[in-house]
């Protein structure tokens, strides 16, 4: 992937995250920078869970395959 493409994708993701966090802090009672950042962190956490989960499953499958290959 070229650098421009990485930049485009990151802009999309950053904008999306910003929109989500803005939506979360739109209602009164949740204003201010700390609220924004804590919400951002939590949104990132929920975004990271599927990625992490997929990675872990991939690793497990890979290690199983390797072990099988060694046995055979």
């Amino acid at each position: 992937m070229k650098r421009v493409e990485w930049v485009i994708a990151s802009i999309f993701i950053a904008l999306g995250l910003h929109c989500l966090v803005m939506a979360g802090t739109l209602l009164p009672g949740t204003v201010g920078d700390p609220a924004y950042f804590s919400l951002l962190l939590r949104v990132c956490f929920w975004m990271g869970i599927p990625i992490l989960g997929g990675f872990v499953i991939y690793m497990i499958i890979m290690s199983i395959k390797k072990r099988k290959g060694k046995v055979l």
Partner: peptide, 22 residues
């Protein structure tokens, strides 16, 4: 405000999806 927040979050998740799809 709640309605706006709903719209905004929809837009946000769409943008996020577009980024990762890319």
């Amino acid at each position: 405000r709640v309605q706006n927040a709903l719209w905004l979050s929809g837009l946000g998740s769409l943008l996020l999806a577009l980024g990762f799809t890319f």
